[in-house]
Amino acid sequence: MRLSWFNVVSLTLGFAFLYIPMVILVIFSFNESKLVTVWAGFSTKWYGELLQNEAFLDAAWVTIRVAVFSSTLATILGTMAAYVLVRGGRFMGRTLFSGMIYAPLVMPEVITGLSLLLLFIGIGLDRGVLTIVLAHTTFAMCYVSVVVSSRLVTFDRSLEEAALDLGCSPMQAFRLVTLPIIAPAVISGWLLAFTLSLDDLVIASFTTGPSATTLPIKIFSAVRLGVSPEINALSTIMIGIVTVGVISASLVSKQAMVRQRREEQAAARAQ
């Protein structure tokens, strides 16, 4: 199909709008000057300074730990929840359950954060890494369960029945048949939970204590005072990791799709 000039213009402007701010951000992370808006020559010194900045490194370490724990926990709970939603049949309180799965997706973060903080204070739990993990797991599991259940819905149920028919216990059927097939959805659920946790400022601010500062909290308090080249450098690193990750993931999945299609065609021809 030929693109009309209108479509070309809207796509160009649209993607320019989406990407120019990030490109500028990346460019000025290599700026010599402390002033983020005036170009003063190429330098990587802000990266050097960033790596010296212990406060940032500590925060990064806390963030990664929180993200790994909470996304793993969220993936397990979210997959269970998805299974219950799609395959659980009827049970008492099913409506409440699905409501609790979907509500956190649209709940403003300030409310989620506030309510969890009040709970932690109410039960006298010391705030720190543990409370952030609990908080992140709770909202991330809902995202995971949405991702996994959308895969489970299209999952051919007779595959599980075939496994049962061939002598599997329900647990074996899940482990040997269902899980390997829905694995891509479970993995992308984990990745989603991981980035949500890495990214979260509001809920972490509410549920953390003085002992644990995450990277977004650190960045937020730094940028409130204005733009700084160090933050640009940090942002560039984060954008870089995400870009490489997303591009390689999409290449891998595209390749797998192309190969599958080719093999299917070959099989059909060979008949």
Binding site: I24, T195, D199, F220, V223, G226, I239
Partner: peptide, 13 residues
């Protein structure tokens, strides 16, 4: 997938 905070921050400059 990129940080929300960073994308907002980009506009400050």
């Amino acid at each position: 997938w990129t940080s929300f905070l960073i994308r907002v921050y980009a506009w400050m400059g």
